[in-house]
Simulated scan of single mutants.
Amino acid sequence: MNRPVVAGVDGSPSSLAAADQAAATAVARSRPLLLVHGYLHPLGYGVPLNPYDLGVPAPTEEAEKMLERVAGNLAGRHPGLRVAVRQVAGGPGATLVAESRRAELVVVGSRGGGGFAGLLLGSVGGQLAQHGHCPVLVVRPAEQPIPVAGPVLVGVDGSEAAAYAVELAADEAARRDAELVLVHVHAPPAAAAPEVAAEAGTAERAEAGTAERAEAAELLGAAAERVRAAQPGLRVTQRPVVAASPEAALREASGEASLVVVGSRGRGGFAGLLLGSVSQALVQHAHCPVLIAHRPEPADD
């Protein structure tokens, strides 16, 4: 199945930046691009102007013109692009989640307006992060230059979801001819209990630190070995990071990257990823685009 790259478009600068990134990605992957606008009825979803008219709200001419204009501009800037547009009578979150069942990738801006207002700052972002059926790329606002030649950064924690994230990150790094940086974040050893003598506390902390370093080296080494077997020519760097806050550590590391890839679930240093504070910190505050590695599911026929 020739799954398209899908971009949510509402005319906002953020969504236009996402659409441009989606177009470049579609051409690079030889995939069609589908621009989608989810619209709400003026009085609320599913509420007709006439209480006796229970039909589905019709697409708006204004939005159709916006989509056609964006599609034409993208086709002019990306030779070889195959692009189609679609309006959907539904909320933006549900619309994009539904489209993700048939997509190669869904690309969204980190902020939106109109049909995608509050995207990735509230419930819409939560729906995509939790329920996307394919990888989701969040394009950051153009508030600062992104190091285009920077490495692709990916979190490693030994989970199945992280393994798929590493696979996606390696593919992206190969396409970009970029370095792949494997990162494992673990907390510093906890302090010994107050009643334990100072000497014993120091020994326990040292032992715990040694165990953490050994686990990090094992996880990173295994991930690097798999990547090199699949992508022999790829530049791979292993980076263990000791930090009390995985959110802060990954956010800081993203400042040097062209892309950061995270799994849809996690454990250890990435516990609760996309279910709690780590995901929210990266999606909202990373310094580069964020790729959420949802494994594609079989498309609905």
Rank of each mutant, 00 (worst) to 15 (best):
P48Y: 07
S14D: 13
L67R: 10
V36K: 03
A63N: 10
P48A: 09
T25F: 01
G55N: 09
P57H: 11
T25Q: 14
E61R: 12
E64H: 10
P48V: 09
A23I: 06
L43M: 12
L34Q: 12
V56M: 06
A19H: 06
V47F: 07
L67S: 09
T60L: 10
R29V: 01
V70C: 14
L16M: 10
V27S: 05
V36P: 07
E64I: 00
A71I: 04
V56A: 13
L16A: 11
H41P: 00
M66N: 04
G55E: 09
R29N: 11
A18K: 03
A75F: 00
L74K: 04
E68C: 01
R77T: 10
Q21I: 00
K65H: 14
E68N: 12
Y45D: 12
L35H: 10
T25K: 05
L35Q: 11
A18R: 05
T60A: 13
A19S: 12
V70N: 07
P51Y: 01
A24G: 15
P57N: 07
V70R: 04
G44W: 02
G46V: 06
L49I: 11
Y45A: 13
D20A: 13
A23Y: 03
L33D: 12
P13C: 06
P59N: 10
L49W: 11
Y52T: 15
V70E: 15
S30V: 06
A63I: 13
V47M: 07
H41V: 01
E64T: 14
S30D: 15
L35A: 09
L54P: 01
L16I: 10
D53R: 04
Y39M: 06
D20C: 01
R31Q: 08
A18M: 07
S12D: 08
V36G: 03
D53G: 04
A58P: 01
L34W: 03
R29C: 06
L54N: 10
A28D: 13
V70H: 05
E62V: 15
A63W: 00
N50I: 04
P13Y: 05
G46C: 04
V47Y: 08
A28R: 15
A63T: 15
P32W: 03
G76I: 03
P32I: 03
E68W: 00
H37Q: 09
P42V: 07
M66A: 03
L35Y: 09
A24R: 15
L33S: 12
M66K: 05
A24N: 08
L67F: 09
A19F: 03
L35R: 10
A63R: 11
V70G: 05
